[in-house]
Design a binder for these strands. Sequence first.
DNA 1: ACTTGACCTTCTAGCAACTGGAACCCTTAT
DNA 2: ATAAGGGTTCCAGTTGCTAGAAGGTCAAGT
Lengths: 131, 131
Amino acid sequence: MNIGDVSKQAGLPPKTIRYYEDIGLVRPLRDTNGYRNFRDSDRHKLAFLGRARALGFTIEDCRNLLALWDDQARASSDVRAIAKQHLSLIENKIADLQAIQKTLTHLVHECAGDDRPDCPILDTLEKLSMP
Amino acid sequence: MNIGDVSKQAGLPPKTIRYYEDIGLVRPLRDTNGYRNFRDSDRHKLAFLGRARALGFTIEDCRNLLALWDDQARASSDVRAIAKQHLSLIENKIADLQAIQKTLTHLVHECAGDDRPDCPILDTLEKLSMP
DNA sequence: ACTTGACCTTCTAGCAACTGGAACCCTTAT
DNA sequence: ATAAGGGTTCCAGTTGCTAGAAGGTCAAGT
């Protein structure tokens, strides 16, 4: 199957798929005309990658997850460790963003937002230590 | 004041400060020996930048905020618009991350995490459509 | 047979916002 | 004199793609 069809199937842009080949995540065959020819297993892998990336796993995580996926003798604890690590990263990010959200909500609320120049948002960025 | 001291004061690495000069956010003077010489206004700006960046504003947002900050005749509504826009971006990100968090939490919970190979995390990445 | 259009290929360069490193200059203290 | 600890520039790398250029291939229509 050619890259365009695979792209539709996996929901990944062709450029992304080529990039994944570049960095060694998939190794499709080649037809005599030079076109990539994706086997079932390649497409399977790409779908896997699409889902893992959608969950925010880094490419390196994906590489490791794929290796475990391929490994019949894997221990599920290895997979779980990666997922847990990633989850805690996500949770930290959420906490950071929520702190920002709180501050910004407060500031936006404070600011009249009219045509006068005085503005608590700028005042805060100017001089206050951040909460 | 030299870059090292400014760095400590503003809580920004020297490299970052040089980068900010590169892209035209600050324009410190130069001593005869070529060293950057930061005036009060430069340091003030850098502190402003540090806080704005800590709130996740992009560099381009920062540039606009700085321009408004400098503009005595600004309308606070312009500042507010930038902040509101940014806030909604943040809120979208939080929502995305929370969806991921939910899925991951569920998966991590499902997975035994022992030395057996069967693993709901891999199973999900393999075949399921994402919630 | 020829052309059109939609594919495919490779390559280079660019995005954001820095960060690391190399190679070198300046100042101050010992 | 020299060593430590500033400073300077410039180039390359990071992450995960994405845009664009220049060109080869294929299937269908005229």
